[in-house]
Design a binder for these strands. Structure first.
Lengths: 285, 285
DNA sequence: CGGTGTGAAAACCTTCACAGCG
DNA sequence: CGCTGTGAAGGTTTTCACACCG
């Protein structure tokens, strides 16, 4: 799903499938909510609904952890919370450092969901000397010169990168060099890391792009009386810009973190709707 | 995956597999970078490396879009940028509203990766009157009373929810009611939406939990000379807090992995409805 | 020759449906 | 009876490997 390098071809013997691991946090969240409301037991059906999956999947997932339910009754909420927490490694405390204290880094620093799950923000690190010492979410920002020392002193094994893309790889290298073996990357870049280091990435714009894909599809369907496709190949195959010379219009912007415009720019050449600001993007019925 | 409800059992005829759609943005990013460096063509091998996938997968992915390469040569960078952009629906402008302007909402508002891919932040909306009118990332915050009007006036079909979990569902309902058909949810809650509405979620703490799982596994491996598993079922079945009526005496719980309180501990002590809960990045409702 | 495009095989994940147990 | 736990079926995704073409 997100591992940068790291092949891990098959999870060892008692391996829990990746897909299952990725859902355990969902179950845990739903269970924690039930626990707060002092609900003692829950059926696979109910819990599945609360977690947004179907019950067969949930039961199969739990079957990888062991037989923790009671037939005819359901699951003991507290017991399951404990089992899943343990499986996820949340019964221990994980010190985490966040590197890059911009808007996003600050948001992460203050995110309640970390602390409540055993993740302790051990340090905030930024390369800007003007930030040094300033408290963000109650934690003083430290200068990146001290990165290695901080990692080692606190025994940090998980690092969060929230820097601009341009420096993400070198920050990553330093983190890894200092002993970090898991990285959560918010910078829109592919990080390369040695074997044994896990990388997961979160790219805010990727999710939006996936939504746009489906959104576009919806729009197309409406007007798809006889037209076979999304006008994909209908008459489009030959309508690309100019293959060679390319538009190259308003490139080179070097916005903040992100890459470049060009994507949408290329479109302007083609026959699509006007790229102006009033495109009626799928009006509701 | 992330769809809250929405079955979509099979993508229609000309359907591109979901897994492929999810990777198109990665390719696009890599291609955009090449385009900026004026690289004219690229092989599947090179592009795959830049995008962090393997080349067979990339070629298969592209084969769903059509035959856009040249055997013996590779792919024309500009041409591919255009084709992928079009496929993703990025050749048009997508107005987006962000609801909940806390730390995270503010970070999203200023995120360069949106604008550069055809997403225009049409409005920032918050329920706190004190925020109203205040510019964030250059855009004035509007009050949530005007939510419906804003959506309709701007023809917004994509909404981003960055509110606390507690109000996410009602914000969602209002967005959908006003015509939004795609939602990107940052609140740690399962949203339910009517058919035809897509929901994708990003949960910052889930990614960390998945990392913790693997991190724990690494730690276990080191000391795994003869010990079969993570002590998972070895003798652990009876070692939960108190199970139902089970004689809690057995095997001193928490002896192995646990020992440190935190997530599980806090949860099992019942009560706890406290402070943080699951709020993403702040802000009152 | 070099590299794409793609059937076919393998791996993985989800769903079904029901045996079996509390 | 009700609900878990799970083999087996079905579907999707990844990988292999090679035919084919510029």
């Amino acid at each position: 799903m997100a591992t940068g390098r790291t092949h891990r071809p098959a999870t060892r013997s008692r391996g829990i499938p990746e897909a299952t691991v990725a859902r355990l946090p969902l179950y845990l969240r739903a269970l924690t909510a039930l626990s707060e409301r002092s609900v003692p037991t829950v059926s696979s059906e109910e819990l599945a609904a609360a977690a947004g999956v179907n019950s067969a999947k949930l039961r199969k997932d739990f079957s990888y952890l062991g037989s923790y339910g009671t037939r005819g009754v359901g699951y003991d909420v507290e017991y399951l919370v404990y089992q899943i927490s343990r499986e996820l490694g949340l019964t221990q405390d994980w010190p985490v450092v966040i590197v890059g204290i911009g808007n996003l880094g600050a948001a992460l620093a203050g995110y309640g969901g970390f602390a409540s799950r055993g993740f302790r923000v051990a340090a905030l690190i930024d390369a800007d000397p003007a930030m040094t010492g300033r408290p963000v979410a109650g934690i003083p920002v430290q200068h990146s010169d001290d990165l290695e020392r901080i990692i080692q002193d606190d025994g940090v094994s998980i690092g969060v990168i929230a820097t601009p893309a341009g420096v993400a790889q070198q920050v990553c290298d330093r983190l890894v060099g200092a002993g970090v073996t898991s990285i959560l990357n918010f910078a829109p870049t592919v990080l390369s890391v040695p074997d044994g280091v896990d990388v997961r990435k979160v790219d805010l714009s990727i999710e939006l792009q996936i939504l746009a894909f489906h959104e576009q599809r919806k729009a197309g369907e409406e007007a798809d009386a006889e037209n076979g496709q999304d006008a994909a190949e209908t008459g489009a195959v030959g309508m690309a810009p100019e293959r060679r010379g390319a538009p190259a219009g308003a490139s080179t912007a070097a916005a903040s973190t992100a890459a470049a415009p060009s994507a949408a720019a290329a479109a302007s050449t083609a026959g699509r709707k006007g790229p102006d600001g009033d495109v009626p993007a799928v009006m509701p019925a």
